[in-house]
Computed example of a mutant assay.
Amino acid sequence: MPTHTTTHSAHTVLTPIVLTIAGSDSGGGAGIQADIKAISATGSYACSVITAITAQNTLGVSAIFPIPLEHIEKQLDAVFSDLNIVAVKVGMLADSDTIKLVAAKLKQYQPAFLVVDPVMVATSGDLLLQASAISTLKSELLPLADLITPNLPEAAALTDSPLPTDDLAMRAMVDQLRQLEVKTVLLKGGHLEQEDNSTDLLILADRIEELSAKRTPTQNTHGTGCTLSSAIASYLAQGHDLLHAVQLGKNYISKAIEHADELNIGAGHGPVNHFFQGHANAG
C-alpha cells in the first residue's frame, strides 16, 4: 500500500502568503474581494478573515452585518495555526471590540509585516467608526503597523483636523501624522481631484518620499484603497523593502485605474481592473 510522504516542509519554494482581515463586498469591487484579487494579481497567495458582511454594489452600501467576535477569532486561529502568513493587511473593522481582538491576535502570532488601511470614512464623508473606536484604533492597532495608508478624509479623522483641499494643506498634515504612534504613513492624495497628478506622500521618520502618477479620468475607482494596501502587503511578503513595495503598489494601482474603463461593471462607481496584465496579454 503506497505511503504519502509529502509534507509542508518538503516544499523547497515558500509561497508568499498574505492575510487580509476586512469586510466582504458583495459587489466584488472593494473589501475582501478586492484584496484577494490584488494579492493574487501581484503574485502572492491570499487568505482571509472576514470581519463584516456588507450588502453593496457599485451604487452604494445597503446593509452591514458584523461577524461575531468569536467567529473572527476562530478564523484568525485557523489561518495562523496552519499557514505561513508573512504579511497581513487590515481593512474594515466595525467597532472597538473587533479592533482589540484583531490587535491581540496580531500580537500573539506576530506576522513579519502589517499594513493597516484605516477604513473610517465613507465616500459620502460619513464616519464609519464611532469616535471611541477611532481612539481604540489609534491606541491598539496602529502602533503595531509597519505602514498605514490613510486617504485625506481618514487622515483628517485620525488627526482631528480639517479635510485638506489642496496640496499645501495636505503637506501641512505631515507633522500631525508623525505624532501618531505609527512607524510609517502613506498619505494618499487621490481626493485632490483638481490636481493633474495623484501624489501620495510616504512619511518616514527622517524624510518624505513622493510618489506621483498621472490622474486617470474615470468614475471606476471603487476599491482603490483596499487594492493598494493589499498590493503593498503582497510585495512586502515577497521580500521587497518598504519603499520599493510602496512604489510597486503605487504602480500597480495606477495601472489598474488606467485600465478600469475596459471593464463594464454596474451602473455606479465600478471597480478598478485588478487583472489588467492578463487582459493585456490576452489581447
Rank of each mutant, 00 (worst) to 15 (best):
A169Y: 04
L127R: 15
A104L: 03
G43V: 06
P217S: 12
S96E: 08
S48V: 10
A260Q: 07
Q194I: 03
D261Q: 11
I36H: 01
K100M: 08
I208Q: 15
S96Y: 00
T58W: 11
G29V: 07
F80L: 05
E262W: 14
K188L: 10
T20L: 04
I265S: 10
A46L: 03
M1D: 10
I21Q: 01
L142I: 10
A38V: 09
P16H: 03
P2F: 12
V185Y: 02
F275A: 07
M1N: 10
Q108N: 13
Q75P: 06
K74D: 11
V86P: 04
M92Y: 00
Q277G: 15
V121C: 07
H4Q: 10
L211T: 03
S48W: 07
D200W: 00
L106T: 01
L147S: 08
D166I: 11
I148V: 15
I50S: 08
K89N: 03
Q56H: 09
A145K: 05
L236A: 06
K89I: 04
P68D: 12
D117Q: 05
T224Y: 01
V18N: 04
S135L: 13
A282C: 13
A46V: 02
V174P: 01
S124W: 12
K250V: 04
P68S: 09
Q247G: 13
G91R: 03
A103T: 01
S229D: 03
H259T: 12
V88T: 08
I85Y: 11
N273Y: 12
N281I: 15
V49C: 15
D146A: 09
Q179F: 04
M120C: 12
Y252F: 15
I39P: 00
P164F: 00
S230P: 02
A280N: 13
G239I: 13
G189A: 00
D25V: 08
L141E: 06
A237H: 04
L147E: 10
N251P: 05
